[in-house]
Design a protein around this nucleic acid. Structure first.
Lengths: 351, 351
DNA sequence: TGTTAGCACTCATTGATGCAGAGTGCTAAT
DNA sequence: ATTAGCACTCTGCATCAATGAGTGCTAACA
């Protein structure tokens, strides 16, 4: 039982209107504003049918209709048309992104800022990181006689470091030895691999000083590896949502904020989403039932995948936002493609 | 015109009561709850005097009294008595802090978490960083033929790194040369010194590849130096404030959140505060007029100074919170003192 | 048979009104 | 100097009626 052309038109009108004004929309105002050539009464009848089919709901008897999650889903799948970005927005994206093109994390953060600025919603961006990332090398650098820096670098150039302060002094030689020792052991392995395997304990040695140092460094090494999995998550424009009528209730607002205070949980959640532009609406998100979430992926050297996203109420300008995100991620992927690379994988990387 | 003993007692009672219940307190309830041996009428008279002197205010004629900023100031200076921490809190602080004692940033973050957990307020912690920090060495590490890591380490072991992606490939030799070259040039100088001076352009060389590489790296070097000034700021428990009655108004809550969205502004603000436990109340903070702010400093190797703080409404348990913060920062400073160090400065550091 | 006008009905919102309760300020008595 | 007593003020809450937006149904219409 498909929807008739007219029903689609009416549904679209209701969605458009509700997205704009955040208030239940009545038959009369639809008839007036959108030129459908039928009377309010007819629209009422159609609305009644649409409600029966689950596309609309009724806050109470004498209120107008509100689109349901199902309606938004239909809209996103079939009705929505991509909006062309304004020249201003395009320019802004181009300029702001390329301004910092040579510094990875900064670029990503700018992207999130841009996204929340343009959409006036809350946004986030995360750097690409997966448990499949491959360790390139490990360095231990001396600071003072008891302090040292542990640094792990992946093949993609992702760096994590920890400053360690030991109880006992170490020797320069032991440090260098361990540094090489560890690089040899772990180079080329994925994070996953290292974290799950027991090889940690394999790297025994006959040199006393080395073993002692190793004993101190290893626990932090593991934690630092885990840190590497904790991608950087930049959140921007969280306070934008306070401006929306759906969040004038303090409880709603608090729930929303608390969701994001749990950064790692949120990160996990987002990493699990599929690639490309993905829209989930209301109930489709098990938590955040009254939010919609749009995520998109960008590529680094045409391969490693990072995520960027927008969160807002289900009442959201899907067409606009997805267009912006598409443009933005394309631009990002472009920025992160090495010159001369055609996108065929990890070009330019170590063999 | 000092306050009489009785006036102080009454004022203290009002503050205690208001801090507890967040509601204007009347003469009758003071007389009942706090055993002052006088009738409500007497208390009323005294309250009237206290109001005239600016210690109390009146939301409206028939409401009870509310302590003013001036009253809180008096309380903090003279009336407040340090509270002994519960054994539970002490144990929690000891355990949680020392669990991660060897990893600096993690410890700091834990400290902020602890603080907001115990006080049920919003808290922050920042790692020590000053423009007086001294550069220890600079490393350039290869990732792939166009990607490299720029790493700056200060004498305190503070690390900042940036991953750079160049337009043209670099050579291994040039990289190593530049690395040494830069270390020689900047080692021992303070951040301030380097950022303000023009020496950046001095490091000319006759090797072509080196100069070209340097041209690409230098702008990022400066930005990375600036990043070093941007201390890490950890904010915790921001959502706690939603539970407070003074922030049930969405506008208040939004103002509060927006303050912290401006991280760098906030950081600057906090760095400017004096050392030790500092309490500023209401109007004493030029922004955040209805908040109180308590900051305290901790030491690293008895020298470098980091900050930790709590933000909440002026109605706050000053005695408790300051005690907690004192205990916590002492503990932190202890954790960050090298074994054997007696606190006489940068012990164990490079000569 | 699909469309529309008309009308009764529903329900949230708004503003006025009145009342209860908490608290003050003043006065007069102790 | 303290206190009891009382008039007065102001908020908060509940009640009530009016308003208006919007539906659902029925009957007329093309």
């Amino acid at each position: 039982m498909d929807l008739s052309e007219r029903q689609l038109q009416i549904l679209q009108a209701i969605i458009t209107d509700f997205v704009e004004n955040a208030e239940p929309v009545g038959s009369r105002s639809i008839a007036k504003k959108y030129d459908l050539g039928v009377s309010p009464a007819t629209i009422r009848n159609e609305m009644s049918d649409l409600e029966e089919m689950g596309y609309l709901t009724h806050p109470h008897t004498s209120a107008g209709r509100v689109p349901s999650d199902k309606a938004y889903r239909l809209y996103v799948n079939d009705l929505m048309k991509k909006k062309n970005l304004s020249a201003k927005d395009k320019r802004m994206i181009n300029d702001r992104l390329s301004a910092s093109r040579d510094e990875f994390d900064r670029t990503i953060r700018h992207a999130a800022e841009l996204l929340s600025e343009i959409t006036q919603l809350a946004s986030f961006a995360m750097t690409p990181a997966t448990n499949k990332e491959v360790i390139s090398f490990i360095r231990l650098l001396p600071v003072d006689e008891r302090t040292l820096i542990l640094m792990i670098v992946s093949e993609g150039g992702h760096v994590t470091n920890t400053t360690l302060r030991l109880n006992v002094p170490y020797t320069q030689e032991a440090l260098e030895l361990l540094s090489k020792n560890m690089t040899v052991s772990y180079k080329g392995r994925t994070l996953d691999d290292v974290l799950k395997s027991e090889i940690i304990h394999d790297v025994g040695s006959d040199i006393e000083a080395l073993n002692s140092l190793k004993g101190s460094v290893m626990p932090s090494f593991l934690r630092t590896l885990e840190d590497m999995l904790n991608v950087n998550l930049y959140m921007e424009g969280m306070t934008n949502i306070f401006k929306l009528p759906e969040y004038t209730s303090i409880d709603r607002a608090r729930d929303f904020m608390e969701l994001f205070a749990r950064k790692d949980w949120f990160t996990q959640k987002m990493l699990a989403r599929e690639d490309g532009v993905v829209v989930t609406i209301g109930d489709e998100n098990d938590t955040m039932k009254d939010c919609s979430l749009i995520t998109a992926t960008y590529h680094v050297d045409g391969k490693l995948v990072g995520k960027i996203g927008v969160i807002g109420p289900t009442r959201m300008k899907y067409g606009e936002v997805t267009s912006i995100m598409e443009y933005l991620t394309n631009n990002l992927s472009e920025v992160f493609r090495l010159p001369g690379d055609t996108g065929d994988g990890n070009a330019g990387g170590k063999k």
